[in-house]
Nucleic acid binder design. Structure first.
Length: 690
DNA sequence: CTTAGGG
DNA sequence: CCCTAAG
C-alpha cells in the first residue's frame, strides 16, 4: 500500500494525492498559475509555502528576491524590509520554526525560492490588490496589531519577536484572515496563546488538537474573538460549522499533514476535531484563503505580491476593510452551508483530513470550478486507492454550487477467510491475516465509483456529466475497491459483493473478519452507526440484486478458492462497496431500476448453468445461477455472447475473464447446434408425419 | 409467463 | 435495460 504523505486535501475524508488544479478564478487572477501547477504543490504545501513566503518575503525576500523590475515591488519590498526590521525576531522565528519543526524545513527554502520565482513572475502589484492575500493579512496584522503583539509578548513571556512571529505566522497562514482576527481578538487570542500555544491551536483548530499535538501555534486560525470563544467551547463537540482551516505556518503544516497520514492510516477520525476544523476554515479562509486552497495554492505568489503591495501604504486600511467585508461575507456564507457542513461533518471522515480537505476542496466552493470538480474526481480515485487498506467505505456526498464534496469514511476490508488449526498461535493468526490483507492490497487495487449502484466506468467524464455534482447524489454515490488485476478467481463474487454479507458465509472455514474495527474508527459521533447502517443497507439493497453468495459458494471452484486463504477470492472484486444510504433504497424505488452489473462470479455461475442446461431454459438457468435474483435475465447471456465475439479492446465495463468468454462461445455454439439439431429432428418428423 | 430479438 | 413479439 502506498500511503501518501500528503493527503492534503481531501475530500472529505480521504487523503488524496494532490493534483494541482487551478480554479478558474485562480487562473484569471494569477498569471503564474501555470507555475503553480508545475510545482504541483499540495494544498498544504502551498499554504505552508504561502505562509512561508509571506514571512520570508516580508523579512527576507524583499531584498533578496524582490523583483526589481517593478518599482512598486521594490517599494513594497522596502516597506516589507522595514517591517521585517521591526520584527526581526519574527524572521528569526520563522526560520527557526522551519528548521525546528521539520521535515519541511527544506520546504521553506523551496518556498522561498518559489516565492522569488513567483515574484519575478508576478505581475505588477496593482493586479493583485483585490485578491491581496495572505501577505496582507500579515501586513495588516503587523501594523494594526502591533499593540496586540505587545500583549502577546507579555503573555508568552517570550520576546516580542516571538509573538510577533506567531502573529505573523498566524496571519500568513490564514491567508491574512488571521491577521484580521488577531487585531480584533488580540486579547483573547493572546490569552490562548499565552496559556497554551498548543492548546490555543487546539481551541481554534479543534480538530488538530485531537489527533495531534500542535507544536506550533501557527496553525491558529484567524478567528475573530467571538468565534474563537465559540470554537473553544464547542471544540469538544463536533464542529458542524464551517471548517476551520488553519494555515499553519510551515511547521504546522507539516504536523497537520503527518497527522492526516496517521489518521488515515489508522482509519480513525475524531469527529470533534473535524468539526472544529471546519469552523475555523471559514474564518480563516478568506476568500483569499479559499482561493488559495481552491486553486491549490498556486496563487500564493500573487498573494505575496499583494501583500507587499498592501503593505505599502494606506492599503492596509483598505485591506483591512476588505477583510472585514470578507469576514462578514464569509460568515453569512457559513450560515448557509451549515446543514451541508453538518452532513459533512457527520460523516466519519477523518477529522483532520477533513479539515484540510475541506479546505482544499471545499473551502472555497465558490471558487471551485468545474475543472476542479473533475480534478476532484481524479483525486477521489486516487484517494480511494490510498485508503484502500482500510476496509469498508462510506461516502457522504455533498455538492454545493459547483463543487462536489465527497467524503469516504472508510473502506471496508473485504472478508477474509482464513483457516488455521486450533493449535495455531495467535501470532500465526495475525500473520495469516496480515498476509491475506497484504495479498489483497498488494495486488493492486483500483477504485470503482458507483452511482446509484451503477459503475461509472468512464473516467473521463466530469462529475457534472456523471451527475455527481448534485446533492441528491449523496446517497447514491459509492466507491468500491477492486483488484486491479483482472485476475478472477472463479466464482467469488465481485461487484455486488455478496461477501459483505456475514450471513453469506456458508463456508466451513473459520472466518476471521478482518479487523472490522478498522472501518469505522474514524467516524464521527453518529457516524459509525450510520456507516453500519449504510453498510447493511447497502448489502440489503444489493441483496436482491446480487446473487446469493450461497449459491456462489456452492461452486466447487468457489469453495476451493475460499479454502485457501482466500485472499485471492477476496480480491476478486469489489472488496467493499460503498454505501448507499437508506435513502438509496428509496431512490432506487423512485428511480426505477438500478443497474446491477454482473460480477465475474455471476458470469461464472451463468456460464456454468448454461453449459449444463443450455440456452433454451432460461428460467432454470437463472434459478440455478442467480437464485434469488429476479432481475437477472438472460440478457446477460446475450451480452456475453456479444462480448465474447468482439475484440477485447471493444469491450467495456467490468472485464470478463477470457476464459469465461471462451466458455460462453463454446456453450453458445454447442447449444445453438443442439437447438438446430432438435429443429432438424423435429422437421423431419413433421415431414414424416405430414 | 417465458423466450427471443431488437433497440 | 427496455420493449415487444411469439409461443
Amino acid at each position: 500500500m502506498v500511503l501518501q504523505k500528503r493527503l492534503d486535501y481531501g475530500f472529505n475524508g480521504y487523503q488524496v494525492p494532490y493534483t494541482p488544479r487551478a480554479t478558474r478564478s485562480a487562473r484569471k487572477r494569477c498569471s503564474f498559475k501555470k507555475r503553480a501547477e508545475d510545482n504541483q504543490m499540495c494544498a498544504f504545501d502551498l499554504l505552508a509555502t504561502v505562509a512561508g513566503k509571506l514571512l520570508l518575503e516580508k523579512q527576507c525576500t524583499p531584498s533578496s528576491s524582490s523583483t526589481p523590475s517593478d518599482e512598486d515591488q521594490s517599494a513594497v519590498a522596502k516597506e516589507i524590509e522595514q517591517k521585517a526590521m521591526q520584527d526581526k525576531n519574527k524572521q528569526l522565528k520563522v526560520e527557526t520554526c522551519d528548521q525546528g519543526s521539520c521535515d519541511r524545513g527544506f520546504f521553506v527554502s523551496d518556498l522561498v525560492s518559489q516565492a522569488h520565482d513567483q515574484k519575478c513572475s508576478l505581475k505588477p502589484p496593482s493586479c493583485q490588490q483585490a485578491d491581496a492575500h495572505p501577505g496582507f493579512a500579515s501586513v495588516i496584522t503587523t501594523s494594526d496589531c502591533s499593540e496586540g503583539f505587545g500583549d502577546q509578548k507579555l503573555v508568552h513571556g517570550k520576546p516580542k519577536n516571538e509573538m510577533g512571529t506567531l502573529a505573523s505566522k498566524v496571519e500568513v497562514g490564514p491567508s491574512g484572515y488571521m491577521g484580521y482576527g488577531n487585531c480584533k481578538v488580540e486579547a483573547e487570542t493572546n490569552k490562548f496563546m499565552k496559556d497554551e500555544s498548543h492548546k490555543t491551536a487546539k481551541v481554534q483548530l479543534g480538530t488538530r488538537a485531537d489527533g495531534c499535538s500542535f507544536e506550533d501555534p501557527l496553525v491558529w486560525d484567524g478567528k475573530p474573538p467571538a468565534v474563537s470563544s465559540d470554537s473553544s467551547a464547542k471544540a469538544p463537540l463536533c464542529g458542524d460549522h464551517s471548517p476551520h482551516i488553519s494555515f499553519p505556518a510551515s511547521q504546522d503544516y507539516v504536523n497537520v499533514v503527518s497527522r492526516d497520514d496517521d489518521e488515515n492510516s489508522s482509519g480513525c477520525t475524531h469527529p470533534n476535531t473535524t468539526k472544529r476544523s471546519f469552523r475555523p476554515a471559514p474564518r480563516i479562509g478568506d476568500r483569499r484563503i479559499r482561493k488559495i486552497l481552491a486553486s491549490k495554492y498556486w496563487k500564493v505568489a500573487p498573494k505575496l505580491k499583494d501583500a507587499t503591495l498592501s503593505n505599502t501604504d494606506g492599503d492596509l486600511k483598505t485591506v483591512y476593510h476588505n477583510r472585514n467585508s470578507y469576514y462578514r461575507s464569509i460568515r453569512s456564507e457559513r450560515n448557509y452551508p451549515i446543514k451541508k457542513r453538518r452532513l459533512f461533518n457527520c460523516s466519519s471522515v477523518p477529522n483532520y483530513d477533513r479539515k484540510i480537505r475541506s479546505e482544499g476542496i471545499c473551502v472555497s466552493p465558490e471558487r471551485c470550478i468545474n475543472g476542479d470538480v473533475s480534478a476532484l474526481c481524479a483525486k477521489m480515485h486516487e484517494v480511494t486507492g490510498a485508503s484502500s487498506s482500510v476496509a469498508g467505505s462510506h461516502t457522504s456526498f455533498q455538492s454545493r454550487d459547483s463543487h462536489v464534496k465527497l467524503r469516504i469514511k472508510s473502506f471496508r476490508v473485504p472478508e477474509l477467510f482464513i483457516e488455521l488449526p486450533e493449535t495455531a498461535t495467535v501470532g500465526s493468526l495475525k500473520r495469516r491475516v496480515m498476509e491475506a490483507v497484504n495479498a489483497i492490497l498488494g495486488g493492486g487495487l483500483r477504485v470503482g465509483v458507483l452511482l446509484q449502484g451503477k459503475k461509472v466506468k468512464d473516467d473521463n467524464k466530469t462529475l457534472l456529466q456523471t451527475g455527481i455534482s448534485h446533492d441528491n447524489q449523496k446517497d447514491v454515490l459509492g466507491f468500491s475497491l477492486e483488484p486491479k488485476t483482472s485476475q478472477t478467481p472463479p466464482p467469488l463474487c465481485s461487484g455486488d459483493s455478496p461477501f459483505m454479507l456475514p450471513s453469506n458465509a456458508p463456508q466451513p472455514l473459520a472466518r476471521y473478519p478482518p479487523a472490522p474495527g478498522v472501518v469505522h474508527q474514524g467516524t464521527c459521533d453518529a457516524v459509525p452507526e450510520l456507516q453500519m447502517a449504510n453498510a447493511v443497507n447497502f448489502i440489503e439493497s444489493d441483496h436482491d440484486s446480487a446473487p446469493s453468495p450461497t449459491d456462489m459458494s456452492i461452486d466447487k471452484s468457489t469453495k476451493d478458492s475460499k479454502a485457501l486463504v482466500t485472499v485471492p477470492a477476496m480480491s476478486v472484486e469489489a472488496l467493499a462497496v460503498v454505501p448507499v444510504h437508506r435513502k438509496s433504497k428509496r431512490s432506487e424505488i423512485v428511480q426505477r431500476r438500478i443497474r446491477r452489473p454482473f460480477s465475474v462470479a455471476e458470469v461464472e455461475a451463468l456460464v456454468q448453468a448454461v453449459e449444463k442446461l443450455g440456452t433454451g431454459r432460461w428460467r432454470d438457468v437463472k434459478l440455478r445461477a442467480f437464485d434469488n435474483a429476479k432481475h437477472r435475465t438472460y440478457d446477460k447471456w446475450k451480452t456475453l455472447v456479444h462480448t465474447a465475439r468482439i475484440s477485447p479492446q471493444q469491450r467495456r465495463g467490468e472485464p470478463v475473464p477470457q476464459e469465461l468468454l471462451d466458455r460462453v462461445l463454446t456453450a453458445h455454439a454447442y447449444w445453438t447446434q443442439q437447438q438446430a439439431k432438435q429443429q432438424f429432428k423435429q422437421q423431419p418428423e413433421t415431414c414424416l408425419l405430414l
